[in-house]
């Protein structure tokens, strides 16, 4: 059985915010799914190579030329960037990654490290 702390940790890694009710519900559901998956431990997989895909294709390369999608469809930039909830000119606008205090901390650390 997963603990509440473990569920919170997974949810945080997955960038999903859970309500307390959801946390309880997912704790039970995820635990029973993981219990079922433990069935795999019955299998002897010594000397078995993991299989990541079934095609056998390795390194499918294209010619080293740029795709001309944006030339053949002049509205493509607007169609793609225009979907973003926040844009500025032809760019996607993102919230600041570091807060001011974090930047100051980083600076002072860099300074003290010389």
């Amino acid at each position: 059985m997963l603990t509440n702390k473990e569920v919170q940790h997974i949810a945080q890694l997955a960038r999903i915010k859970l309500t307390e009710k959801e946390e309880e519900k997912f704790k039970n559901e995820l635990s029973s799914i993981l219990d079922y998956i433990k069935k795999l431990n019955e299998l002897n997989t010594e000397d078995v190579k993991p299989l990541y895909q079934t095609t056998g294709i390795i390194n499918a390369l294209r010619p080293d030329e740029h795709r001309r999608d944006f030339e053949t469809d002049e509205n493509l930039n607007e169609k793609l960037v225009g979907q973003a909830p926040h844009t500025q000119n032809r760019f996607v606008k993102v919230k600041s990654v570091l807060s001011k205090s974090q930047i100051t901390n980083t600076k002072s650390q860099t300074n003290s490290n010389g």
Partner: peptide, 14 residues
């Protein structure tokens, strides 16, 4: 324990 193990099981099933 999970991901690699399952990929090995996938190989056995194929």
């Amino acid at each position: 324990a999970y991901y690699t193990k399952a990929q090995k099981a996938r190989a056995l099933i194929k």
